[in-house]
Every structure is written in structure tokens, then in C-alpha cells.
């Protein structure tokens, strides 16, 4: 497994894990209060920061367990990266589009923020998954 492939695995695990934690915490709060009163901002910010830190930690652990021959990103890594970003960028577009419509419909900030966050998470998770499939099965 190349250095970049390990990084992609780490990013996938960290992004999905952080969002799962966010869903559990905010989902529990939403069950006990109207969504307009649910406190989500701090959890959203902290899970985003934690995702970045966890990604670095997981990558370091993978690299320690099985060191790569080289940390250099080669032409195949770059092509796979571009392919993954090309496929997953639509989740950002969809999230922004949905947020625009929700803002025009004057929905609560909670829903607008969450649909944008979901767009970012899907971009990260689907992009990473597509890249890993490309690493394993070819472009």
C-alpha cells in the first residue's frame, strides 16, 4: 500500500468516524428538544477539527505499522486523486444547492448548516472510497 493510499484510508476512517460522533451527539439532543433550540455549532466545529487530527494520527499509526518505501506522490497517485475529486465534487455542489433552496424557504439555520456539513462529509467519504477502489481495481 502506497503512502497516499494509507492517507486516503486514514482520511476516510476519520471523516466517517467524526461525522458518526456528531450524529450521535446532535441526534440525541434533537430527540429531547425542538431543532431550533438544539446546540450543534460547537459539536460541528469540534468534530471537524477532531477529524483532521484523527486523520493525521491514523496515517501515522498505519505508517508506523507498515512503513512505505517512499512518501513521494507519483503520477498514478495524482491521477487517482483527481479522479476521486472529480467524482465527489458533486456532493459539495448538491450540499450548496440544497442549502440555497433551504435558505430561500427560510428554514431554520440548523437544517441549513447540517445539509452543508453533510455535503462536506459525503465529499470526503465518497471521494476517499472512489480513490480506494481506483487503487485496488484500477482507473
Amino acid at each position: 500500500m502506497s503512502y497516499d493510499e494509507k492517507g486516503t484510508w486514514a482520511y476516510l476512517v476519520a471523516s466517517a468516524g467524526a461525522y458518526l460522533v456528531y450524529l450521535v451527539i446532535v441526534g440525541d439532543r434533537a430527540l429531547h428538544a425542538p431543532v431550533a433550540e438544539v446546540s450543534y455549532v460547537a459539536v460541528l466545529l469540534w468534530t471537524s477539527v477532531a477529524s483532521g487530527i484523527a486523520s493525521t494520527v491514523v496515517r501515522t499509526l498505519l505508517e508506523t505499522a507498515s512503513p512505505s518505501d517512499s512518501r513521494k506522490r507519483d503520477v498514478r497517485d495524482k491521477e487517482i486523486y483527481r479522479f476521486g475529486e472529480y467524482v465527489s465534487r458533486w456532493f459539495i455542489v448538491a450540499g450548496a444547492g440544497a442549502a440555497l433552496i433551504m435558505a430561500m424557504a427560510k428554514l431554520d439555520y440548523f437544517w441549513i448548516a447540517n445539509v452543508i456539513y453533510l455535503g462536506f462529509v459525503l465529499w470526503a467519504v465518497v471521494g476517499s472510497a472512489v480513490k480506494l477502489v481506483a487503487y485496488r481495481r484500477g482507473l
Binding site: 518505501d69 517512499s70 498514478r76
Partner: peptide, 22 residues
């Protein structure tokens, strides 16, 4: 891989037909 400036994983992918080089 060293001689052509790529990673060993890329040489493996080319050999196995999972990647078409430029």
C-alpha cells in the same frame, strides 16, 4: 520504479494491468 520515477505500487499496478502508464 526508481529508474522510472514512480512508486513500487505503480509498477505492480502496471504489471497487473490495473494501470495504463502514459
Amino acid at each position: 520504479a526508481d529508474q522510472i520515477g514512480v512508486t513500487r505500487q505503480t509498477v505492480i499496478a502496471i504489471e497487473q494491468g490495473r494501470y495504463s502508464p502514459s
